[in-house]
């Protein structure tokens, strides 16, 4: 296990180099330099001399290799300096924004997975029943509606017309919950369809295995087979599916953050792109990369814990 972990951690080296290279190609080679400069210099004050001045100031006149190595160093040390726009340390900005995104996405994700798992189990248990068919239809319907449409409808009907929730907003502390309930509900609605379908399929697939037939032959009850055996064995694909989604949670909230004025990391990244705030952009990309690598590692480890047949070595 330890060898495996070390090996996986070593994989971080080419990953960071690769991420740095892609970022560098996009922002430093293909045209980012000029765009960056044109954006920090308002048109009315732009001159060739000023552009040269800033190129020098930001080190954009150095050889490409030096600029690339500088980027790699920043990514390895996670020291991206200060935001070009706000002049606040990038780490401080991340620490301000990440918890807000987490408040939005993690509870919603937890609710959604729980609800999906329960509904999928019931669908699998009562396969072919009216309930199963109804949930299947609703799931497909849910999958067909985009998040944007749901947001617009949610804000228009639930918040504005019925006055059940605030339309948008945010406050510091516990009071933020009232602004989160509608985004949570929308998150659940938009995701539950996909997950119910996937979990149901995983459970049904498991129910066709030989050991289930054997258990039935031995006279075990359907409930016992479903909840003690099938559910447990179906956990492997379900767990993989669930854990692998976690790194995307922070990214997946961009639309919700924008429409509900939630100061999260997705919003931070979008604004960094609009403002060509390269230090913030680099940091958010690196943050997501590490988050992703970390959770794929956790998935693999959990695999082994759930299914002793899997050996990490």
């Amino acid at each position: 296990m330890i060898n495996y972990l070390i090996r996986r951690l070593l994989h971080l080296v080419p990953i960071i180099l690769g991420v740095a290279l892609v970022f560098f190609l996009i922002f430093n080679v293909i045209g980012g330099q000029e765009k960056f400069l044109y954006n920090i210099l308002p048109k009315k004050s732009r001159t060739v001399e000023q552009i040269d001045f800033y190129k020098h100031k930001y080190g954009l006149d150095r050889p490409m290799v030096v600029q690339y190595l500088d980027l790699v160093k920043q990514m390895v040390t996670f020291d991206f300096g200060r935001s070009e726009v706000r002049k606040i340390p990038v780490k401080t900005l991340l620490m301000r924004h990440v918890p807000n995104s987490a408040k939005l996405t993690f509870p919603a994700f937890f609710f959604e997975i729980s609800i999906s798992l329960i509904l999928a189990s019931l669908c699998a248990f009562y396969r072919g029943s009216k309930f199963d068919r109804l949930i299947t239809v609703l799931s497909v319907l849910g999958m067909s509606i985009s998040m944007l449409v749901l947001i617009l409808l949610g804000q228009q009907i639930l918040a504005y017309k019925w006055g059940l929730f605030p339309i948008s907003g945010w406050v510091k502390g516990i009071g933020a919950i009232k602004y989160l309930i509608l985004p949570w509900i929308l998150w659940v609605l938009v995701s539950v369809g996909y997950d119910v379908r996937f979990f149901r399929t995983a459970l049904l697939e498991e129910s066709h295995k030989d050991y289930v037939r054997t258990a039935k032959a031995k006279g075990l009850s359907d409930k016992s087979i479903m909840f003690k055996h099938i559910l447990r064995n179906a956990l492997i694909p379900i767990l993989t599916y669930v854990v692998i989604q976690i790194p995307f949670l922070l990214m997946g909230s961009i639309l919700l953050e924008r429409f509900f004025s939630i100061p999260g990391i997705g919003d931070l990244m979008v604004n960094a792109i609009f403002n060509y705030d390269l230090p913030v952009l680099k940091a958010t990309i690196m943050f997501f990369t590490l988050f992703f690598v970390g959770f794929t590692l956790i998935t693999d480890v959990l695999y082994a814990l759930v299914d002793p047949r899997i050996r990490l070595s």
């Binding site: 617009l152 804000q155 228009q156 918040a159 504005y160 339309i167 948008s168 924008r258 429409f259 004025s261």
Partner: peptide, 10 residues
């Protein structure tokens, strides 16, 4: 408020 639909509803 960056979205005009939200501006209008508010």
């Amino acid at each position: 408020i960056e979205e005009s639909s939200v501006q209008w509803l508010k």
